[in-house]
Design a protein around this nucleic acid. Structure first.
Length: 930
RNA sequence: GCGGGUGUGGUGAAAUUGGUAGACACGCUAGACUUAGGAUCUAGUGCUGCGAGGCUUGGGGGUUCGAGUCCCUCCACCCGCACCA
């Protein structure tokens, strides 16, 4: 009997579907385990062989945990809102809902093909109104909350109103503006509009005017992490800064907590470090410098080096700093204006690429140094960012490289506060040594002087210690159609949320979801508004005008892991009972590309829901596993310029050629199937070839797998050719899960061969089932028990490649022993279930079982079969292995020593010398030192 | 520039705690069976040498009886951030 994977896999897929074998219950006596994959965006291209890598790993782990007696939640869904569907709609007029539906169906088919154990009854789709109803609901929780800096948590906005009514905002300063103060009377005297504006400055989801990244080509604003190297991450289009009224999430209030609780997570250092860098905490001080000639103007700077305050030689303001126009002198006005024009004219891309260039302009104004009373000139320059710190710095050229370059460029005299270690050529940026020329800091160690300086600054009443974060509040508005609508209606230009009293007169404005209306065209609306602005019958309600922006892609994905716990709940985003049972995701698997986007926003939403008492845990993903990317291996042909002649790769340098991608399915290894190539496209029908050794050899390069590069390999093809079980094991066998590598088909034969060999332990070509009830030998038991142990250990530590190779070793050894015994082979079928479930189920039923192998407990191993009682020791002389000798593990060292020294080979290497030392490490090795 | 990571045969890789480097595969070589094989099986396969042996984990140095593993230093590549005061 042959291993007919096609029929076997079909049979058991059907059986599992009929049995509902993957259904998961929220009530169980078993301990819970939640293992989650990052859900995919269902693109039109379908899955390629790279996508399932992480899914296979999590599937194996989930199945293993189930066999180990856990109630395992392992769901899947779709991140279904997004730009590509909308852009496709713009081009073809097809509604995104239609194309999305189609793509999801295709994804589902491909995923099922590989045999994943998802409970599809828990599927979520972010674009489903029954799902985004709750995305909107959570947004409203953020809208109706503020961050209490005393209790360090989010609280309902109505608490804040109560506080304002009682005492004003004296104890609860405005996060955007410390100077904004009012008392209880002040609050009460405010108009409705003023009160709402004031609350807006506290809300966790708030509206504000801010400079945002505007992408003209995409017709939308983008979040900071969606802008890469000065262009849009998606599409690579130029972006510019623009003032717009936008929704934001006040993530900056959570900066410290997001930073602190990273320590408790089992994520890779790289991932944690990326988040730390993104949050970008720095300790320092804020210092105020008075501007000479103005009684009421001063420049506040943020510095991490208050210890260098005596080295200040000039001040620099960001070009957009509000004081620039006020302090610029008449003489310098023209120069400053022309510099500001120059700055405006530069695109973000130019700024980034010409970072080293020194530019700037003197304002003509000065501040007075608070300690030395010296006059210090004020410059403006691009190198100071308006968006960080206070948008102004105190420049210390002797201690900062950039300040040093600036001082040299503008020939500003440099004060040396470091003595000999500063050589006048380059700034001294180390924090070792003693300060000089520094007033009351003279002689202090640099790393100790900071505290002293801050105390002096505070005593003088000109500043205070200050912590700064790089992270900005997250932009939450998009001018798109295919996203969640905001549950917001403007009455007299005041935004109210669906369900608020002010809208209650109108029943249609009381309930969520606010559904996306159907539209005819997807073009942007007027003045940078989204396509929804064109749908006037939707925009205009009885009470007022709807918000026409939609939420960004990360909205729906920030909480989807919660919905899986209770996906059909119509009354809550997820019931407390369900969330208290499943709690946080135990293991989350996905790529590193979401380090500062999705993973950060999910953490924020989880913390807010926790603060407001909706869930009982504060972090969404306890352990994070990052799978590597499988890249494509592209193939190229070389067309000689102006001809239809193609030259083999080895000969291409003799001609002027164009490199053209060819579909990898037409290439075997590197050899092109020239007939297939001619049939590929009409333009190649009469192609001619210059061959080497009778073959056309293609060029090869590793690139991202993509349709346009013709290097996509579909899992369906592999499954059709070798079966899902082979495909699953092969992807795991490729190497460690976290390593990226190009797709390589060659090795798959080896894994397939292994499964056939395993099959032959159970079946003979002629006789069929050949498993016997004979008792096992010690050797056979040793093999299977060692395998049971190693497979369990390897799965636990996500080392699937070594697990596969252990299966190979096991099968090789059992084959060599001609072992067809039930005890051993039944155990083998059970432990291979997570890797090759279809094959395992077939074998399991052949053994006569009625139930599914999915619930067969993962067997334990017996220590006595795993531990050897003797060891073949490598015996080394001076660290070099010379001979192998076998001794029982419990043999006394003295006896071993005697035998080793008596050995003829060892005698030879001793050359008659007396050993200085005899090293015996039990179970490891023996070393004789002479 | 800063931060994180990786370097092991022709190839993918293994070595979990400092203890026989290269497990397991791919590929290749030879052979068996076969009408045939892209099926299956057997043997070999880091480099070097006839051999005993010598050499070998990016380079150099160190600690150790013993280093792929620890320390120092240099080089190369990958990823992230990037004028963050």
């Amino acid at each position: 009997m042959e291993y007919t994977f096609g029929t076997i896999e079909k049979k058991w897929k059907k059986y599992w579907a009929e049995q509902g074998a993957y259904r998961v219950n929220n009530h169980s006596d078993k301990p819970k385990f939640y293992i989650l994959d990052m859900f995919p965006y269902p693109s039109g291209a379908g899955l390629h062989v790279g996508h399932p890598l992480g899914y296979i790993a999590s599937d194996i782990y989930a199945r293993y945990k189930r066999q180990k007696g856990f109630n395992v939640l392992h769901p899947m869904g779709f991140d279904a809102f997004g730009l590509p569907a909308e852009q496709y709609a713009l081009e073809t007029g097809q509604h995104p809902a239609v194309t999305t539906e189609k793509n999801i169906a295709r994804y589902r088919e491909q995923l099922d093909n590989i045999g994943f154990c998802y409970d599809w009854e828990r599927e979520v789709r972010t674009s489903d109104p029954q799902y985004y109803k709750w995305t909107q609901w959570i947004f409203l929780q953020l809208f109706h909350s503020w961050y209490d800096r005393k209790e360090l948590k989010a609280r309902p906005i109505k608490d804040l109103i109560t506080l304002f009514e009682k005492e004003g905002n004296g104890h609860y300063p405005c996060p955007e503006d410390n100077a904004f103060c009012f008392d209880a009377k002040g609050w009460k005297s405010m108009s409705e509009k003023e009160k709402r504006d004031t609350l807006m400055r506290y809300r966790l989801a708030y509206q504000g005017y801010a400079e945002v990244w505007w992408c003209e080509a995409l017709g939308t604003v983008l979040a900071n992490d969606e802008v890469v190297n000065g262009v849009s991450e998606r599409g690579g289009y130029p972006v510019v800064k623009k003032q717009m009224r936008q929704w934001f999430l006040r993530i900056t209030e959570y900066a410290e907590r997001l930073l602190q609780s990273l320590d408790r997570l089992e994520w890779s250092d790289a991932m944690k470090e990326m988040q730390r860098n993104w949050i970008g905490k720095s300790n320092g001080a804020e210092v105020r410098f008075d501007v000479i000639g103005f009684n009421d103007l001063h420049i506040t700077v943020f510095t991490t080096r208050p210890d260098t305050i005596f080295g200040v030689d000039f001040m620099v303001l960001a070009p957009e700093h509000e004081l620039v126009h006020k302090i610029t002198t008449k003489q310098q006005k023209e120069a400053v204006e022309s510099y500001l024009n120059y700055v405006k004219s530069r695109s973000e891309r130019e700024r980034i690429s010409e970072v080293k260039q020194v530019t700037g302009c003197f304002t003509g104004a000065h501040v007075v140094h608070p300690f030395t009373r010296k006059e210090v000139p004020i410059y403006i320059s691009e190198y100071v960012l308006g968006s960080y710190g206070t948008g102004a710095i105190m420049a210390v050229p002797s201690g900062d490289e950039r300040d040093h370059n600036f001082a040299k460029h503008f020939e500003i005299p440099i004060t040396n506060i470091f003595g000999n270690v500063y050589n006048g050529e380059a700034a001294y940026t180390e924090k070792a040594g003693k300060l000089q020329n520094s007033g009351f800091l003279d002689g202090l160690e640099i790393n100790k002087a900071g505290e002293v300086a801050i105390r002096a600054i505070e005593d003088a009443g000109i500043g205070r210690a200050k912590v700064n974060y790089k992270m900005r509040d997250a932009g939450f508005s998009r001018q798109r159609y295919w996203g969640e609508p905001f549950p917001i209606v403007y009455v007299n230009d005041i935004p109210y949320s669906i369900g608020e009293d002010e809208l209650n007169a109108h029943p249609s404005l009381q309930k969520l979801p606010v559904e996306l209306p159907l539209v005819q065209d997807y073009k942007p609306g007027p003045e940078g508004e989204g396509p929804l602005a064109n749908v006037s019958e939707w925009v205009n309600t009885h009470a007022g005008i709807r918000e026409t922006n939609t939420m960004p892609g990360y909205a729906g994905s920030s909480w989807y892991f919660l919905r899986y716990m209770d996906p059909h709940n119509e009354h809550e985003f997820a019931g407390k009972e369900a969330t208290s049972y499943w709690r946080e995701v135990d293991i989350y698997i996905g790529g590193t590309e979401h380090a500062v986007g999705h993973l950060l926003y999910s953490r924020l939403w989880t913390k807010v829901l926790y603060d407001l008492g909706f869930i009982s845990f504060e972090e969404p993903f306890k352990k994070l596993v990052n799978q590597g990317m499988i890249q494509g291996s592209s193939r190229f042909v070389y067309r000689i310029h102006g001809t239809n002649k193609f030259v083999s790769a080895g000969l291409k340098d003799r001609y002027e050629t164009n490199k053209i991608h060819v579909d990898v399915s037409m290439v075997n290894g590197l050899e092109l199937d020239t007939t297939a190539f001619k049939n590929w496209r009409p333009e190649y029908a009469d192609a001619t070839f210059e061959l080497e050794d009778g073959k056309y050899i293609c060029g090869a390069e590793v690139e991202k797998m993509s349709k346009s590069k013709y290097n996509v390999v579909s899992p369906d093809d592999i499954v059709a050719q070798f079966g899902a079980d082979t495909f699953r094991m092969y992807e795991m066998f490729l190497g460690p899960i976290e390593v990226s590598k190009p797709w390589e088909q060659k090795g798959i034969e080896g894994v397939h061969r292994f499964l056939k060999k395993l099959w032959r332990l159970y079946f003979d070509e002629q006789q069929g089932w050949i498993v016997t009830e004979e008792p096992c030998t010690e050797a056979e038991l040793r093999i299977i028990h060692k395998t049971i142990k190693k497979i369990g250990d390897d799965i636990e530590r996500f080392s699937f490649n070594t697990a596969v190779s252990q299966f190979m070793i096991c099968v090789n050894e059992l084959s060599a022993l001609n072992c067809h015994k039930r005890t051993v082979l039944e155990a083998l079928a059970v432990i291979i279930t997570p890797f090759a479930p279809h094959l395992a189920e077939e074998l399991w039923h052949r053994f006569g079982h009625e139930s599914s192998v999915l619930d067969a407990p993962f067997p334990g191993y017996e220590e006595k079969y795993v531990v050897d009682n003797s060891k073949k020791y490598p015996v080394a002389v001076n660290g070099k292995t010379r001979v192998e000798m076998e001794f029982p593990l419990d043999m006394e060292q003295a006896l071993i020593e005697k035998e080793v020294l008596a050995d003829t080979t060892i005698q030879k290497w001793l050359e008659g010398k007396e050993p200085k030392k005899f090293i015996y490490v039990k179970g490891k090795m023996i070393n004789v030192v002479i």
